[in-house]
Design a binder for these strands. Structure first.
Length: 423
RNA sequence: GGUGAGGUGGAUGAGUGGCUGAAAUCAACGGUUUGCUAAACCGUCGUAGGGUCUAAAGCCCUACCGAGGGUUCGAAUCCCUCCCUCACCGCCA
């Protein structure tokens, strides 16, 4: 959620920025300002009238104590009259405040100056590409064949137990998942991230805090009996741990990491995009989240990108880093870098991480603040990234490391996996 | 799931209709004293919206004592609904 003050102070600049995100309802900016004007006006009237009521009520107390009954009754009539004028003001104020809120949440975050113009994923900018295309042997298979061949993941069983898109990991497939999770978490905690295991279901307030609600409820699994949502990413519960907190400056930055399963309904896609592990409804992901001083957030974004990069590199996977263009960025992000690993048998890039700076967009909703030198509360900046999402990493690992004899396990994973080979 | 107790500022905790945005203690912060540390003493110490002001400071107003509604001239205090926490019992990994 954008801060109204910024819309007021830099209206034209805000519109220019929104245009880069291909946001066309620019009139909403003016609407917000108009609603805020109206809100202030009504709020003032409310305060003045309420002050009158409070004052008179106090006087009644004094009059009653002195036994001046008639004067007290006269005051009561005065209060009654004020209450009559107050009622429509209160009603109007509630309507305007709701409208203001509803309008404000429709505005996406402003893209940073680094965000390239563009509408489609093709217009993302590749900022780095690393690694060699693996030389595969004749007859190399895509990962959905490999997982059958080595009995690592069974989709049919998932369909039986739940439905399509709920893979069952088995044998060394399950073990590899566990190894990846442990390795990633160890890597993150070594870099100073505090490890958490959060709940996998969240309430409405939490889903609202990170921006899943309103609007995106269709993308989450929902449990009506308890009014809970299954988390689409650890970002949701983890960032909300600090919701409505004022954090001491000396405690910054807050660095958190968590492994969670992630649940996504996302219907729609088809073909090779959804084959095998490319897109599933339940998958595992390790997330990193930081809450930082606003002046540090871009520095920290670079640091997080470098952190994820070294992790991907350590697995020996070919990857590229993209700076997302305005049209491909998420609603809440100010700047996003996507990591894609090369899937050698599918011969395509698979997204395995997305690292974003949200500036104060999320923290404004969640009221996550710190005290500046003057003792004033200010919003922090929030950032998060995947380090990493497992299914596509697994797909790339299986495909890129396959040989006639089996699948080689990267050195860094061997201590976790307990062997160097799936054969 | 049942029964009982309760949700007040960073923490403990007082407060059953007006003088309570909230005692007291602790913590924290600033200062005085002091070889250092400790102790003692003095002071400050919730959040948000608005007004006044060139601006800051200050001053003033409004809202907030789990959430929402109600009673009343007036509610932290009374009533209703919901949420949550704790204890005991039941069930259970």
């Amino acid at each position: 959620m954008l801060q109204v003050a910024i819309l007021r102070q830099q209206t034209e600049w805000v519109k220019e920025r929104l245009a880069i995100k291909n946001f066309s309802d620019l009139h909403l900016v003016d609407e917000v300002i108009a609603l805020d004007d109206r809100r202030k006006q009504l709020n003032f009237q409310f305060d003045e009238t309420q002050a009158g009521i409070n004052k008179a009520s106090k006087e009644i107390g004094g009059l009653m104590a002195k036994g001046e009954k008639d004067a007290a009754e006269a005051k009561k009539a005065e209060v009654a009259a004020l209450k009559t004028t107050l009622q429509p003001i209160t009603e109007q104020l509630a309507i305007v405040e709701k409208e203001l809120q509803d309008t404000l949440v429709k505005l996406p975050n402003l893209p940073s100056a680094l965000v390239p113009q563009g509408k489609t994923p093709e217009e993302n900018v590749t900022v780095k590409e690393w690694g060699e295309v693996p030389a595969l042997y004749e007859g190399a298979q895509p990962h959905w064949e490999l997982i059958k061949q080595y009995d690592l993941v069974n989709f049919e069983l998932g369909v039986k137990v739940t439905g399509s898109g709920f893979p069952v990991y088995k044998n060394k497939g399950a073990r590899l998942q566990r190894a990846l999770i442990s390795y990633f978490l160890d890597y993150n905690t070594a870099a100073g991230y505090t490890e958490y295991i959060p709940p996998y279901m969240v309430n409405e307030a939490t889903a609202y805090g990170t921006g899943q609600l309103p609007d995106k409820e269709g993308q989450m699994y929902y449990m009506p009996a308890d009014n809970f949502y299954l988390i689409p990413t650890a970002e949701v519960p983890v960032t909300n741990l600090y919701r409505e907190e004022i954090i001491k400056s000396e405690e910054l930055p807050i660095k958190m990491t968590a492994y969670t399963p992630c649940f996504r309904r996302e219907a729609g896609s088809f073909g090779s995009d959804v084959r095998g592990l490319n897109r599933v409804h339940q998958f595992d992901k390790i997330e990193i989240v930081q809450l930082v001083h606003p002046e540090k957030s871009y520095e920290v974004l670079d640091e997080m990108v470098a952190h994820v990069e070294q992790l991907v590199q350590s697995l020996g996977l070919k990857y590229r880093i993209l700076r997302l263009c305005g049209g491909d960025m998420s609603f809440a992000s100010a700047l996003t870098y996507d990591f894609e690993v090369w899937s050698a048998a599918q011969k395509k890039w698979l997204e395995c991480s997305s690292v974003s700076n949200f500036e104060s967009f999320q923290t404004n909703r969640m009221k996550i603040r710190y005290k500046d030198e003057k003792g004033k509360s200010q919003l922090l900046h929030s950032l998060n990234g995947s380090s990493l999402a497992l299914p596509r990493i697994m797909a790339a690992l299986l495909e890129n490391n396959q040989t006639e004899k089996g699948i080689a396990i990267p050195k860094v994973l061997q201590p976790y996996f307990g062997m160097d080979w799936i054969g």
